[in-house]
Computed example of a mutant assay.
Amino acid sequence: MKILNIVGARPNFMKVAPLHRAFSQYPDLESKIIHTGQHYDARMSEVFFNQLELPQPHYFLGVGGGTHTQQTARTMLEFEPILAAEKPDAVLVVGDVNSTIACALVAVKEGIPVLHVEAGLRSGDRRMPEEINRILTDSISDYLFVTEQAGLDNLKRENVPDGKVFFVGNVMIDSLVHYRQKARQLTLLQETGLAPASYVLMTMHRPANVDHEQGLRSIVRVARNTAQHKTVLFPIHPRTLSNMEKWGLKAELEAIPQVRLMEPQGYLEFLHLMENAALIITDSGGIQEETTYLQVPCLTFRDSTERPVTVELGTNYLLRDLNPETVEAQVRDILAGNSKKGQVPPLWDGRAAERIATIIREKLR
Rank of each mutant, 00 (worst) to 15 (best):
V114K: 00
L115H: 00
V117A: 00
E118T: 00
E118S: 07
E118A: 06
A119L: 08
G120N: 09
G124M: 04
P129W: 03
N133K: 00
R134Y: 10
I140K: 03
I140C: 09
S141D: 02
D142H: 06
T147V: 13
Q149L: 09
G151H: 05
L152T: 05
N154S: 15
L155M: 08
K156G: 12
K156S: 08
R157F: 11
D162C: 08
D162T: 05
G163E: 08
K164S: 07
V165L: 12
V168F: 03
N170I: 00
N170P: 03
M172L: 15
M172F: 15
D174S: 06
D174Q: 05
D174R: 01
S175Q: 08
L176A: 06
V177M: 05
R180W: 05
T187P: 06
L188Q: 08
L189I: 13
L189F: 15
L189P: 11
A197C: 13
S198Y: 04
S198T: 04
Y199M: 13
M204K: 03
H205P: 11
P207G: 14
N209W: 09
N209V: 09
D211R: 07
H212A: 14
E213Y: 10
Q214A: 15
G215H: 11
G215S: 11
I219T: 04
V220D: 06
R224S: 14
T226E: 04
A227T: 00
Q228R: 12
Q228V: 04
K230G: 09
P235Q: 01
P235M: 03
I236R: 00
H237Y: 05
H237L: 02
H237G: 04
P238A: 04
L241N: 05
N243T: 14
E245H: 10
K246N: 15
W247D: 05
G248Y: 07
L249D: 06
L249I: 14
A251M: 15
